[in-house]
């Protein structure tokens, strides 16, 4: 593998993404909402339960409908603490996965389909890189920033969550084992899922928007997880998260295998 060429392609793709406000803005706004705004809302929790007419027994009955494992995790906390743990540790957990998925998808769509649209792919195909090196470089140029944002976002989320909840919790309560698994095991797989889907979609479309709209459907499973967790249909235990990661990695392997098959110079050049 020609590391220098690979890093040149990554550098190029990242500079191109950074040069487009239209692409950059969602990559900033969505993480800020998920990693800062939502956990910051936890600081409002004591105020919410003190609103005249607020019924703490509603919260109790809501938690009573949650899976037994989750109820066990919440046992021993008062109602306000339970709300905070429920929201910051469990309900927002699947939502965290939207960030690596989105960042990887947007950059991959710009890198694969966008390059076709801008008619810059042909010059790249005439360089002395092999098909595998080009594919690997393009995958990394989407995956590395996705993981950078996901890891940085996790640290930010942990700081904001602990600070916002400090008056209620009185201790550092975040992260737990499930979140660590989510960050180091599931998020990289989800980023791979987003970019792998875009590689396949991009081979059939002619532009960034088309790729992003078609590939955007990949967010549906994450939305299902968010709804499932919020309604208590499922409980993001460490075991479930580990299994979820395994399934997504398996799907990634299949998608990327097809991606390598699709990413052939001879195929790409005739579609320019």
């Amino acid at each position: 593998m020609n590391r220098r060429a690979i890093s040149a392609v990554i550098r190029k793709d990242l500079k191109v993404v950074l040069g487009s406000k239209g692409i950059l803005m969602p990559l900033i706004i969505v993480p800020v909402v998920i990693f800062v705004a939502l956990p910051a809302l936890a600081s409002l929790a004591p105020g919410v339960v003190n609103i005249p007419g607020a019924n703490l027994s509603d919260i109790g009955s809501f938690i009573a409908r949650m899976p037994a494992g989750l109820q066990a995790q919440l046992a021993g906390y008062d109602e306000v603490q339970q709300i905070i743990i429920l929201m910051l540790v469990y309900v927002l957990a699947p939502m965290y996965l939207i960030v690596p998925l989105m960042v990887a998808s947007v950059i991959a769509a710009d890198s694969f389909a966008g390059e076709k649209e801008r008619k810059t792919l042909e010059a790249l195909l005439y360089t002395p890189t092999s098909d595998q090196e080009l594919f690997f470089a393009k995958v990394l140029s989407a995956w590395l920033p996705a993981m950078g944002v996901a890891l940085g976002g996790f640290v930010l989320y942990a700081i904001v969550a602990n600070l916002a909840a400090w008056p209620v919790m009185g201790r550092i309560f975040f992260p737990n084992l499930m979140w660590i698994l989510l960050v180091i095991w599931v998020a990289p797989a989800v980023a791979g899922l987003g970019l792998g889907t875009m590689v396949l979609v991009s081979s059939r479309v002619s532009g960034f928007q088309e790729a992003y709209q078609l590939g955007g459907a990949i967010v549906i499973p994450i939305v299902v997880l968010v709804i499932g967790q919020a309604t208590g249909v499922m409980y993001f235990s460490a075991g479930l998260v580990a299994l979820l990661g395994l399934v997504i990695w398996a799907v990634d392997a299949v998608i990327l295998w097809f991606g390598i098959k699709v990413f052939q110079r001879g195929e790409l050049i005739v579609r320019i």
Binding site: A5, R11, K15, V16, Y126, T127, P128
Partner: peptide, 28 residues
């Protein structure tokens, strides 16, 4: 070999210098 394609095939979001230095790395 070097190829000048029919359309310039340049990254318009990058500077002229960046376009050249990235391809200098790609061509070794």
């Amino acid at each position: 070999t070097g190829v000048l394609t029919e359309t310039p095939s340049l990254d318009e979001r990058l500077t002229g210098r960046d376009n050249l230095s990235i391809y200098a790395d790609l061509y070794g």
